[in-house]
């Protein structure tokens, strides 16, 4: 050849064959996941068929499979999740805003940043052990028998056990630690996505840093932040391991604070303050407990529990997607 090098004779058919094979491999990788998930959901639905009814949703647990229900873990998960969100959102958002907007690039910041990513990968059981030591037992500094801190609030009194013991607050704080790294990193990503020009424009108009963050940066980053928070809440919802260590109960016939209707709130509003220090169960714990019971019907009961848990999680994720969409349009990008 005039160019002085040879191009090997091209086996075009072979190259096209490789192309098709590769596409087929990718396709089967996709369907492997979808099919297995489908089989699991269908199998669970089949098991749960006839057991998932109104009675199941409105009854307390029972020794008889036919009478067992998941009202207690539904309430327990509701309380756990509410408190976890209450702890996670201000701390997570605050930490992310400080790291992104205020802190300068020092070695301290870099160490924290690296460890945030590492913490997101720590097994959840480890957080359970930590929560047990710190929140449930408070390192034993209050001794072994329960002390109580009673705060008089006029119409009612607020009783805080010291240490907290196996209560909703201990569980929520533990789950907060578990999801905080994820929330902080997600919020940081969202804040980082806001162009510097927006910040500069705001500062140049005489806004303080806080005003810039409050009026420009956070509203613009809200869709991303919200998605991170809701996904973290879904994770907290589904976590069983740390709650087992904390000592969530598996046989409960009451809601935290004994509040299971609006009526109870009117009768004793103080119960809302004391409910966080009550014992509890949670959805994944209850499912785990039912599966390990020997009586024949409980496998169906736990399948019904799994379906309820899945529905709750899918609902939460849908809300996340909807909220993100909603805030995006409101932003007028």
């Amino acid at each position: 050849m005039s160019l002085g090098f040879d191009i090997p004779a091209d086996d075009l058919a072979k190259r096209h064959r490789k192309e098709r094979v590769f596409e087929w491999i990718c396709l089967s990788a996709l369907w492997a996941g979808v099919v297995i998930l489908g089989i699991l959901v269908l199998g669970t639905t089949y098991q749960a068929w006839g057991w998932l009814d109104w009675q199941f949703l409105t009854s307390w647990d029972s020794r008889k499979p036919a009478e067992a229900g998941l009202l207690a873990p539904l309430w327990g998960s509701f309380w756990i999740l509410t408190l976890t969100a209450l702890f996670t959102i201000p701390v997570g958002l605050g930490a992310a805003v400080y790291l992104e907007e205020y802190s300068s690039d020092t070695w301290m910041r870099r160490i924290i940043q690296v460890n945030l990513s590492n913490l997101a990968g720590v097994p959840s059981i480890v957080y359970g052990i930590l929560g047990m030591t710190v929140f449930v037992r408070a390192f034993g500094i209050f001794g072994s028998e329960g002390k109580k801190l009673v705060i008089e609030l006029g119409i009612t009194q607020w009783t805080i056990p010291l240490p907290f013991g196996r209560c909703v607050v201990s569980g929520a704080l533990t789950l907060t630690l578990l999801v905080l790294p994820t929330v902080i990193v997600a919020a940081q990503e969202a804040l980082r996505g806001i162009p510097a020009s927006i910040r500069h424009a705001s500062l140049a108009l005489g806004a303080t840093k806080w005003q810039t963050i409050r009026h420009q940066v956070i509203p613009a980053a809200l869709p991303g932040i919200l998605t991170g928070v809701i996904l973290a809440m879904s994770r907290a919802m589904g976590e069983a391991a740390p709650l087992i260590l904390i000592g969530a109960l598996t046989y409960v016939a009451f809601a935290p604070g004994r509040i299971d209707s609006l009526d109870d709130v009117f009768k004793d509003p103080g119960a809302i303050l004391n409910a966080p220090f009550d014992t509890f169960s949670a959805l994944p714990i209850q499912v785990f407990s039912w599966i390990s019971r020997p009586k024949a019907g409980f496998q169906h009961v736990s399948a019904a529990g799994i379906i309820v848990l899945l529905v709750v999680l899918i609902t939460m994720n849908s809300v996340a997607i909807y909220a993100r969409q909603r805030f995006r349009t409101k932003l007028k990008w």
Partner: peptide
Amino acid sequence: FQKSTPFP
């Protein structure tokens, strides 16, 4: 600024 930076 050089690039117009309207707030969203």
